[in-house]
């Protein structure tokens, strides 16, 4: 049983760290935006990049030719610098975000996702983690601003409207299953969020040969690949989260599945994302249609996260409101 009183010093530190996190993310968001706004149209540059034709002939050529087209070198250097600064700001913000979640856990002596406020903090942390991990392996810096917008919004709403003073949870939440079930849900939600953002961009982006501001967005193929990657990762995690939830429900409520509103909506979300994967695998439903399905799934996820707690009463109602 965790202590009845939270450590006020640590709780205050957590509160300060989250404000710091928001600040860093906001600055990073602007830096990403500046880099993106200054970037040249990305049509030709992307088209040249055909799917990796491994030319491991006589001598090994570098896998990819440098992508930056020739141009006013100084300006693009400066932009790249801004972009790099944005990444480092994100890393700093991520560290503060992590620190906030950890201190919250230490202050309360339990897993720090016992209510909506704490849950949103953790989802934003994983969304940024997912983005940073993708950044390590792929060129997705252009996504930065679009990941930061919902993260900053989410944290803002959490701090302003969902804030609850650190403290113990009700006995129903007092189980090691919270570490398994809620963590999986948090990870899946965070990564689904990155996919959702890329999906919205995909729809905004329109055709390849567009002119104007939209042409600065990444190409549809790139966005499609980002979405595919995130869903392929997040879908099994979400499946696991739902099943772990069923296992917990079996211990806490005496049945593993009871069509509680939260259960129902997690099931709906699961089905819609499954439909996305099937649509991708079937000819004729790929592209825009699959993307729309993915976004419906994301909408269901968000409704499950907020709507179910706000509008419908159920067994998950202790989650914060």
């Amino acid at each position: 049983m965790p202590p009845a009183q939270a450590d006020t010093g640590l709780a205050a530190l957590s509160d300060q760290l989250i404000l710091f996190t928001v600040l860093l993310y906001v600055v990073a968001m602007f830096a990403y935006a500046i880099e993106l706004a200054g970037a040249r149209a990305r049509r030709t540059a992307q088209k040249a990049k055909t799917p990796a034709l491994a030319t491991v002939g006589g001598d090994t050529a570098p896998p990819e030719a440098p992508e930056e087209p020739a141009g006013p070198a100084r300006a693009s250097d400066r932009l790249a610098l801004v972009g790099k600064a944005a990444v480092w700001l994100t890393v700093a913000g991520w560290a503060a975000n992590l620190g906030s979640v950890v201190t919250l856990g230490l202050a309360t002596g339990r897993w720090p996702w016992g209510n909506m406020y704490e849950f949103v903090l953790a989802v934003c942390l994983t969304a940024v983690t997912g983005f940073l991990v993708m950044l390590l392996r792929h060129r997705v810096r252009y996504l930065g601003v679009f990941v930061m917008v919902p993260v900053v919004l989410g944290l803002g709403i959490a701090v302003r409207y969902l804030y609850v003073q650190a403290g113990p949870v009700v006995p129903a939440l007092n189980s090691y299953w919270i570490a398994i079930h809620v963590s999986a849900a948090i990870i899946a939600s965070g990564v689904f969020m990155v996919g959702g953002v890329a999906g919205i961009l995909y729809l905004i982006r329109g055709r390849q040969d567009e002119k104007g501001l939209l042409s600065r967005l990444p190409s549809r193929e790139d966005l499609d690949r980002v979405v595919q990657r995130t869903i392929v990762f997040a879908f099994p995690v979400w499946t696991f989260a739902v099943i772990a939830g069923a296992l917990w429900a079996d211990r806490a409520w005496g049945r593993y599945w009871g069509w509680d509103p939260k259960e129902t909506w997690s099931f709906i979300t699961w089905i819609v994302y499954a439909a996305y994967l099937h649509a991708r695998a079937t000819g004729g439903w790929g592209g825009k249609r699959a993307m729309l399905i993915q976004l419906v799934g994301f909408a269901c996820l968000l409704f499950n996260l907020f709507g179910v707690n706000l509008f419908i009463s159920g067994l998950h109602s202790y989650a914060g409101f």
């Binding site: 709906i268 089905i271 439909a275 079937t282």
Partner: peptide
């Protein structure tokens, strides 16, 4: 066919929605 399976998946999702919005006798 996959198309039918997709439509059925959607129908199942849609059909679950009233179950979460209206009170259910079993719950």
């Amino acid at each position: 066919s996959m198309r039918t399976a997709l439509i059925l998946l959607f129908l199942m999702a849609l059909a679950s929605i009233p179950g979460s919005l209206l009170p259910q006798r079993g719950i």
